[in-house]
Write a protein that binds this DNA or RNA. Structure first.
Lengths: 225, 225
DNA sequence: CTACCCGTAGTACCTGGGGACTACCCCGCG
DNA sequence: CGCGGGGTAGTCCCCAGGTACTACGGGTAG
């Protein structure tokens, strides 16, 4: 914590690299230990210099910033934090970068203070986004994870026993009775009994409706989106 | 930008209200115009005072902060921004608050500077989260939306013809072949042909898996409620 | 102690769903 | 002009899935 934060700057434009280097070296607790001109170079230099934080531009020739971020954060033992910097705040970039493992996302018009603060935050293991990006992320998050299942349907799930609920979730994964039986280590007929009771209790006709029911009530959720 | 930012503070603890009031009134561009002791009070005062930003505590007697946030942001014409403040940063609170429409989420241990900065950010229409919360949100976002966005599954839907896609969505609503036939005004056998081709093209076994597929790829979505 | 629920499992039966064909019509494209 | 793909539809066949009914051991609420 008391040691200086070692930073690597990856950007294809020399002016940008030098500008940020000057800005950051002005901070007593931050030291720019290297510069990289593209993604491949960044990966090499990270291996060599072991910086704490990489300031990563997205638009770079050859291996881009997002791909480089992915490769730097992919390995299990990776400890380097990536702070993505870009001129544009296109949604795609942001989401891709975050999925790639970036700890932060700033626009290049950020002030020197903000930049230094961001470096400290990500070095501490936290994350930081430019305010308008945070807003979009929240919006996206809400859109994706909204749909709180609290309807009358949801209630009916409560009528099912624990075992029946278990079977229902397996039905909702597309498993056949035989597969469910194998999974639960019971006879197939037992599964059929459960299935029948589930359908009866929920007032459904067949397993397909049961699967739909499971999704609609939020018992199971789409693993993506 | 030039006008002062009008802030309402909603917290059941008087000490907290007064503390924040003093802190914020020290800022030249921020003015605390009112205080509320619980969610219901906050809703009333917002209607009366029309503040730009509400500092909202989550734990309050009666109508809690999250419910109050929901009611304040629900109406289409709502312009007030909610900045949620809490002592604890439990995940559930954060996600619920963001879904409820909050623009920001800070811990009460934030510095005066951070608080004032946060008020300005949300007043400007952007969003802001405490760093460690940002980190968790990013993690959650990645987890939720990373899985299969551009995966092989999504592509495969493209192989289906228009009619087949139509049939698939009906399958995913739990309809039987006969019902689908009636809906599309064709013979049941025609539906069976479509279903067979759908299963073949998608590499699935039965209509239940097809329904699951439809949900997983986002072709159909849980209708919420 | 009795009654009930849950999970288990069996037998017998019926049908909707799905596979494997074949076939026709229409339309757009080379 | 012929060819191919999409949508339609038919036949034959088989089985997974679902219904109905019975049954039994274990747990627990009354």
């Amino acid at each position: 914590m008391t040691t200086t934060i070692r930073v690597l700057i990856a950007d294809d434009q020399m002016m940008v690299r030098q500008g940020f280097t000057v800005l950051l070296n002005a901070e007593p607790d931050i030291e720019v230990v290297g510069q990289a001109v593209d993604g491949a170079d960044a990966i090499d230099q990270v291996a060599e210099l072991a910086p704490d934080v990489v300031l990563m531009d997205i638009r770079m020739p050859g291996v881009g910033g997002i791909e480089a971020t992915r490769r730097l954060t992919e390995p299990a033992g990776a400890t380097v934090k990536i702070l993505v910097l870009t001129t544009f705040d296109l949604d795609e970039y942001v989401y891709e970068a975050l999925r790639a493992g970036a700890s932060g996302f700033l626009l290049k018009d950020a002030s020197a203070d903000e930049l230094a603060h961001a470096v400290r935050v990500v070095a501490a293991g936290d994350a930081l986004l430019a305010p308008n990006i945070t807003k979009r992320l929240i919006g996206e998050f809400s859109r994706v994870s909204a749909a709180v299942p609290r309807g009358p349907l949801r209630e009916r799930v409560g009528d099912l026993t624990e075992r029946e609920t278990e079977v229902l979730t397996l039905i909702a994964q597309g498993l056949s009775n035989a597969e469910i039986a194998a999974r639960l280590v019971v006879a197939e007929q037992t599964v059929k009994t459960h299935v029948s009771r589930i359908l009866f209790k929920l007032g459904l006709r067949d397993r397909t409706q049961a699967a739909v029911f499971a999704y609609e009530t939020g018992l199971v959720r789409p693993s993506a989106f």
